[in-house]
Design a protein around this nucleic acid. Structure first.
Lengths: 127, 127, 127, 127
DNA sequence: GTGGTCTAGACCACG
DNA sequence: GTGGTCTAGACCACG
């Protein structure tokens, strides 16, 4: 039994950063907090944060300027969106359909719930 | 930052049991493992398991026979289904719609994904 | 032989609280003493009081505001009345009739005592 | 708060003996268990049992034959009945009416419950 | 052996 | 400071 989040910490931090970009908290070209600052904020080892940053750099979401810091890349928003959408379609959507099946809901039921939502957008909790 | 599952352990165990009932691994009238067995298997304190069992007893999903053990209640399946559906509609569905919104998908997009799924039921991963 | 009250302490405390609500000592919306205060007053473990409070919360008699305290629920009086009446009819009334039978009184005798009481309401001790 | 039965132990034991006489477990003239036997059975001090026996002797319910033991007195049944009936009318009945009042039942309601019971004697649990 | 209750004490989130 | 969760360990009733 998994009582702890099985996702690697550096990937959890990556999600957190991507989400801030998608929420427009950090915009393209913005400098984001340093490895040390982020490590202190999240109370994790700086090496873990460094791994997150290089991972997002590989994905084209972050850019580095040596001696200055890390920045949201020019296409950082679009790349973040693409990355998260891919994850959604690949991991989360199948999981949702499995859950619906377990509960005896059909994909059609879910479509109805979506249509209901479209007619009444404030029916469920916003953040 | 949440590196640990914020859900209380006794509720995680409850979900695990309810899922087994919904999957027909345990049927109505079946005796389920004793408090101590489950505690040993999951490596948690027996008190925590007891809390789960009494919680599910309050929900009408389990029944107890003192000195004998816990059993899936006569209406355990229907009660489990009702409990999980309520949780889905109340907690998970809003969270799904928030996630869709963050990713720039509309409820309509999601309805389309569901229709796609209806035409191609095996398109996403089964368990 | 029972030299100790066989009723669980957390249920005894529940009765005590319900009685205070029925006697209007605490009214709907009132904050009741904190878990720790009650535990100190009754000289029991805070966990035992917590068990009482969550039990009464499940019954719809108490409500909680995290970090603030426990309150008598909006329908706390009616719920308390329903709970106690159920207990009376289910547990106490059969016990009264058993006792009457042992003493050679019939249900008819008891009805006569009640009629006597109706004609002379102050005939027995008030609290 | 009273977590223990406030009734003195020697009186609890007296009730137990009187009940056995009323239930015809011990009949008039029967020898009842010795002080030591009863003390062992109930795991109390023999002095406490002795106090019970002399108390019931004073009430005319038990008789002693030195060197032989204690016996149910010739009028032991009638005396037991009178004693318990007095206690019922003096202590228990007022307490029942207070309880009814707290629950919003009138003496008339109770009379109705008794009439119901007369029509349906097996409606509540026998022992 | 099974469930059931209680204590003692720790630690957490929330405000 | 408030509620909430968890562990460790004890002891009980019931069968």
């Amino acid at each position: 039994m998994e009582f702890r989040n099985p996702q690697a910490i550096y990937l959890q931090i990556a999600d957190l950063i991507v989400e801030r970009i998608l929420r427009r908290r950090w915009r393209e070209g913005d400098r984001i907090p340093s490895v040390r600052e982020t490590a202190a904020e999240l109370e994790v080892n700086p090496n873990t944060v460094m791994r997150t940053y290089t991972h997002l750099q590989d994905a084209g979401i972050l850019e580095t300027q040596r001696g200055i810091g890390y920045f949201v890349a020019k296409d950082g928003f679009a790349k973040s969106l693409a990355l998260e959408r891919e994850r959604f379609l690949k991991d989360e959507l199948p999981s949702i359909f499995r859950r619906l099946e377990l509960l005896g809901f059909s994909a059609e039921d879910m479509a109805h719930m979506c249509e209901e939502r479209m007619r009444n957008p404030d029916g469920g909790g916003g953040q």
